[in-house]
Nucleic acid binder design. Structure first.
Lengths: 157, 157
DNA sequence: GTGGGTGCAAAGTGTTTGCAAGTGT
DNA sequence: ACACTTGCAAACACTTTGCACCCAC
């Protein structure tokens, strides 16, 4: 992600905080920087680890207290992949309508965007009396490559 | 749900159990009957409550041990609506491709099915090298009726 | 009879919170 | 100065598990 985006997202968060009479702190800044450094989905514990490398004073409690703020601000999205802990998706800020394919064979998670699906969702929702605010689509799939060749980029049979 | 469906679903579960060298028991049967009696999404705790009305000997542990079996068998589906506990959807057995609209205003959850969306998902997945096994689509929306009239079937402003 | 099943209560796990001290505005 | 914030550790809530007894096949 280019620095210019990073700056504008940081500004967005500061503005969001200000509107709620909340403050930007060193710890929140470290957490923000940790998030900007990845495009992968991550857990709270991973974020704590990364944040502490930037600022060792960041505590688990602060990470857990900050995550809902980042989510509400639209910088992160909570994801449930059926595991016991939540995952957070940092690509939501720049691609709010992307979806996920989770491969049950090779455990890859692939992201994609489809205007056609978004349009259909709008149509269907409207017909039912709703206006779409956000959407979350997860496709569980199996890997064609793995099944036809016995191996894929991620895994062998 | 008509009794005939109920019987065939019960048979499906018994067959599923048999294939794993597992057995049908009174407790599992009570849990199954409790599930057949609802079309609403429910929690583990609710299911325990309902099951105990059919057979008071059902324990919390058995409910928690049986839920993954029912999910794997395809009779239930785990749903995450952002709450701290999981919800289970009993309509999955008869409508495996249905989706959810969750209204952030009036808190309704509406189910719908769309062949067009399913077809698009297949196309996109195939293009990316995957074969769809299941899909989970949640649309978060706001209620048009509530916003335009100041009230809807579920809630007033 | 044997291997799976059960209830109970204790343990586990990710997340939240009360508190006293610290800090941004 | 006054709120908002923090780290720490205890508390939480949901879920899982060890164990001794029970029961379906």
């Amino acid at each position: 992600m280019p620095p210019v985006d990073r700056q504008s997202l940081k500004a967005k968060f500061v503005e969001f905080l200000g509107a709620k009479d909340l403050r930007m702190t060193c710890q929140r800044e470290a957490i923000l920087d940790a998030i900007f450094a990845t495009e992968e989905h991550f857990t709270a514990e991973q974020l704590l680890d990364w944040s502490r490398r930037i600022d060792p004073s960041v505590s688990r409690a602060t990470v857990y207290r900050t995550l809902p703020l980042l989510t509400e601000c639209g910088l992160l999205r909570e994801m449930d992949f059926g595991k016991d802990h939540k995952f957070y998706d940092p690509n939501y800020a720049t691609h709010p309508n992307h979806s996920h394919i989770i491969c049950q064979d090779c455990e890859r998670i692939v992201e994609f965007e489809s205007d056609k699906i978004v349009k259909l969702e709008d149509e269907i929702s409207s017909r039912l009396g709703f206006k779409v605010r956000s959407q979350k689509l997860q496709i569980t799939a199996s890997c064609q490559e793995l099944h036809s060749r016995g191996a894929c980029a991620n895994k062998r049979c």
